[in-house]
């Protein structure tokens, strides 16, 4: 874990805004590139950083590491319509400095014996899966990425995704890819997969949890949580897994889907 001040190389919107009813509206999704060799050296796919978003906020904000290129790190983040931290972050310009600490958490674990990996991303879930997919591809694994979003405008642009990964998309309203949820795509792709890595809202995991197609497959999922410290000290992000309490920030954010009881997969 390093606490650093990083220079912003680029900060630009990738996805448009989306007004939503009964859910937080989105003002857009941004890609920010930072020069931070200390974190770029250490970070593993699935880990996250805590970013201090201005002087006015009491808590730092957690963001998955989205990409790593030499001494640079990219974060892909949603700017919530009512989110002070993410609004602040979206207004930073190239050349500005950012205070952050990390890498934090456990990250995904690819088994050496695995050959075919299936990645499942719901909405912003693409954030850590990009890093995982790119690194695994370079290590010689075969990869399929199932990517879902509410609507076409919220789907991560295909031209920005790493090459050499088979992509299948779905949108809730059918404006891009197959109509329906990304989890509904899963049964057609699990048979070949040695491991499945997912990142998305808890509703997605809730849909995945009882699927017969996933019954004997190792499935690792990344949990989102309200976090205070990111370091396992404030006990704000406690989650109950089948054999006790864990801190999402320190013991996760990646857990085995099998270890998560149904009540933890309810929306928070």
């Amino acid at each position: 874990m390093k606490q650093v001040t990083a220079k912003i190389i680029r900060n630009e919107p990738v996805l448009k805004e989306l007004a939503r009813r009964h859910a937080r509206s989105i003002s857009g999704s941004w890609l920010i590139w930072l020069r931070c060799p200390e974190i770029a050296r250490e970070v593993r796919p699935g880990q996250f950083v805590m970013v201090r978003c201005g002087e006015k906020l009491t808590l730092p904000r957690p963001f998955s590491v989205h990409r790593v290129k030499e001494n640079r790190v990219a974060l892909f983040f949603t700017v919530w319509a009512d989110g002070q931290g993410t609004h602040w972050l979206s207004r930073r310009k190239a050349g500005d400095s950012l205070e952050l600490f990390g890498p934090l958490g456990n990250g995904y674990d690819i088994y050496r014996a695995s050959k075919n990996l299936l990645l499942v991303g719901g909405g912003m879930g693409v954030a850590p899966l990009y890093f995982l997919g790119e690194q695994a591809r370079d290590q010689g694994y075969a990869l399929t990425l199932l990517l879902g979003a509410q609507t076409a405008s919220q789907l991560y642009p295909e031209k920005l995704l790493p090459s050499g990964i088979d992509l299948v998309t779905a949108t809730d309203d059918g404006t891009a890819g197959k109509k329906g949820s990304v989890s509904a795509l899963l049964p057609d792709y699990t048979s070949r997969a040695d491991q499945i890595f997912a990142c998305g809202p808890r509703a997605m995991y809730r849909a995945m949890s009882p699927m017969p197609a996933l019954k004997d497959k190792p499935v690792q999922v990344s949990l989102e949580a309200r976090m205070g410290c990111g370091l396992g000290i404030c006990y704000g992000c406690t989650v109950r897994i089948n054999n006790g309490l864990r801190q999402v920030c320190q013991d996760g954010p990646v857990f085995n889907l099998n270890d998560l009881p149904a009540e933890e997969l309810n929306p928070i």
Partner: peptide, 20 residues
């Protein structure tokens, strides 16, 4: 002790509410 139900944290203007 297992602590309280989630959510346990809420950020406020210049502050943090917790119910760990």
């Amino acid at each position: 002790r297992e602590g309280n139900l989630q959510p346990r944290l809420a950020e406020t203007a210049g502050g943090l509410l917790n119910s760990i």
